[in-house]
């Protein structure tokens, strides 16, 4: 991967900032799609995330993986976005509910990631968030508990349920 010119971005060089944007837009948009309820929400998260990255670029100490630092900002932005929406509580109790099996018949022919994004977007916000944080970002349960303001036990139990629902939807989409 080409290294972004951080110094030029810090000085407000629009060309450098655009190159930076081009470098990360694909991966970060994929990340936003995984957290968001819809594509429109993902676009908003992406926009806010890049603005925050450019604003806080001076705080990057130079240590550690730069992409990891950028990714962390986008994850935080996505969580804040979900929190602001408050459309549904972050912790979900789906006991006794039939989970919708709304799989697209053509989904299996799509790239697996695109298929999985659709499945993730069908998950309740709480399940989706914990699944993303644990499985894809690699956060531990204590970290998730701190981020989401829940107990470690709740984090673990919600993850198990999230995985169960995700597996159910995934298998449904693959066999369709």
């Amino acid at each position: 991967m080409t290294q972004p010119n951080i110094q030029a971005c810090l000085k407000g060089d629009r060309l450098a900032q655009k190159q930076f944007f081009e470098l990360f837009k694909g991966k970060m948009f994929a990340l936003c799609l995984r957290y968001a309820n819809s594509r429109e929400d993902a676009e908003d998260i992406l926009q806010d995330g890049f603005v925050k990255v450019f604003r806080d670029l001076g705080q990057y100490a130079g240590a550690g993986n730069f992409e990891g630092w950028v990714r962390k900002i986008f994850v935080n932005t996505a969580l804040q976005h979900l929190h602001r929406q408050k459309r549904s509580p972050l912790i979900t109790d789906l006991d006794g509910q039939d989970f919708p099996d709304e799989t697209d018949p053509y989904m299996a022919e799509e790239p697996p990631a695109k298929n999985m994004i659709r499945i993730l977007q069908q998950l309740p916000v709480g399940f989706r968030t914990i699944f993303n944080l644990h499985v894809l970002e690699g956060y531990s349960h204590p970290e998730i508990a701190e981020i989401m303001g829940i107990s470690v036990g709740t984090s673990k139990s919600q993850l198990l349920r999230a995985k169960a629902h995700f597996r159910k939807l995934l298998e449904g989409s693959l066999t369709a």
Binding site: G12, R14, Q17, K18, F21, E22, K25, G26, K27, F29, A30, L33, R34, E43, L46, Q47, F50, V51, F54, P111, P112, A113, K114, M116, I117, V135, L136, F166
Partner: peptide, 24 residues
């Protein structure tokens, strides 16, 4: 799941840079 997302990149709308730039 991890492997599926490892190299996956989604395409944001073409005017996204303009939106980001305007906010900057």
């Amino acid at each position: 799941v991890r492997k599926s997302f490892e190299e996956y990149e989604a395409s944001p709308p073409s005017d996204m840079w303009n939106r980001v730039s305007a906010n900057l």
